[in-house]
Structure formats: structure tokens, C-alpha cells
Amino acid sequence: MAAPKVAVLFGFGINCDHETAAVFNLVGGDAERVHVNHFVSGNRSLEDFEILAVPGGFSFGDHLGSGRLMGNRMRFALREQLHAFVAAGKPIIGICNGFQVLVKTGLLPGPAAQNTPPDFVQRASLTLNDSGRYEDRWVTLEFDSESPCIWTKGIKRIDCPVRHGEGKFVMPSTTDFDALAANNQLTVRYVDPSTPVGQGITDEPLSFPLSPNGSMRNIAGICDSTGLVFGLMPHPEAVYAKWLHPDHTRNSAPGPLTSDALGEWEGEGLQVFRNAIEYVLGNR
């Protein structure tokens, strides 16, 4: 079977495009970095791809709020293509700046009722970290095992870095959160690593730096009602291999690398991307 084609957006300050393409390729995808303007100009069509990834970065310098200007390009210039992509049931992931973009285009969290086509209405936001600082630090994430999110199936807890200045997830009212929670769309949260796996998730605000940004309900990432569109602030692609984990010198080094896979050196983050590839292959 042909490898699923993945469009990894780049241009205008997106800067995690290389590694995001690489991790899809490591798990059997056929990823291509495509400049946003190729889709805008009609040179290329989003329709030719089966997965869309909006990587991290500083699109347009994040001036006027993170992800906002890129969000506008997508909301105004790619509206029809995106609409069709989502309607076709194809997975989308936004990481860090990509998550901010998806929130600001209104694809996340999206309309409440399942199977409602995207309406491009912004319902949430990601704002400045309470600390006021951009920081690169490792956090522990725990996933809602009941979430409809196709990207996070089977993943319980992982460590990965956050690298952002605007990662505090906010929505106007508690009822907004309750609605998402009821549908298990609060897919991934920051947790205290000293809690037992599976029991880390809490709505009570965690202290800094367990929660690196003061996010409401410790939210690190959410999905839309279908579970196909997923966004998160932390970077799972940044721990595709164990050698990228800060603790890797604290363990004895295992044996040699096999030629075609990372073997026992596979990092915890890679499963996110494998899930999507497997989803596409399983739904062809």
C-alpha cells in the first residue's frame, strides 16, 4: 500500500517543518514540506494529501498574537480547501504555533456538535504565559484515554518539551470547558510527574513550572469533536528518539541501531504520528 501523503506546511516563519516531516517519514508516511503559498495560489491542492500538519514556529513573528496572521491566511485564503479536507475526514495536527493557528482559524475546538462542518469561528485562544516569558522546558503530559482523538490512541503519559511564550489555553467561560470535557476533547494535560500514571490529570491549576504557562485546567492540547483535528502546545516530534530525552545519559546505553528503524531508541513522541498513519491506512 502506498505510504500516506502528508502535507507539512512551511513558510512565513514556520520553523519545525523539517523535523515534523521527518517524524512522519520515520513511521511510514510520505511527508512533503509544502509552502503555504502553493496552496493559496492553487499550484498545489490540499486534496492530494491525506494528512495535514501545521508545525511549530513563529509564523509572521507572532506579532498581533501567536498564530493569528497565519490563521488569517488559512481562514481567508484556504477556507474552501480546508473545509473540504476536514469534511473528507482527513486528520490534521497543529503543534505549538500550529496549534495556535488551528485555534485562531476556529478549527479547534470547532463546532460543538459532531459532524458539523467547520465554521471558522474562533472559540478559544492561546495567550501569554503567566510567567511572561518564552521558555523551553520539559513537561510531563497525560492523555485522556477516552478521548476521541485518533492521534493519541494508546498513549498514557509522555515527557516532551514546551517551547512557547503564548501557551495559556483560555476560553470565555467554565461551561465552554465543561462541554469539551464532556466530549473528552481535553485530550492532553500537563501533570505532576510524581503522580501515578493514569491519575495525573486534574482541573486544579498546577504550580509553575509543572504547568509551564498557567493554562486553564492545565490544558496542553485539545481535539475537535471528531477527534481528527488535534492541536497541542508541547512538541512530541522533539522526542522522536530517546537520545533527545534529557535523561538519556542517566540510563545505560542499549545496543546498536538497526538500519531501518530506531529500534529500542524510539522516543515516546513518535507514536502520535504513527497513530495518524495507521488511521489513514486503516480507513482507505
Binding site: C16, H18, R133, E135, D136, R137, L244, H248
Partner: peptide, 21 residues
């Protein structure tokens, strides 16, 4: 810590290391 030290997913030894990093 305010510098991104691991974009490109290649940084193996980071500027701060250890159990509490």
C-alpha cells in the same frame, strides 16, 4: 531557558542537564 535550544529536534545534550534539568 528563554532560548529555544531544541527546535529542529536534534539537541541531545541541552544547556541544562540532570535530574531536575
Amino acid at each position: 531557558r528563554q532560548y529555544d535550544h531544541e527546535v529542529i529536534a536534534q539537541t541531545v545534550v541541552k544547556p541544562f542537564v540532570g535530574v531536575e534539568r
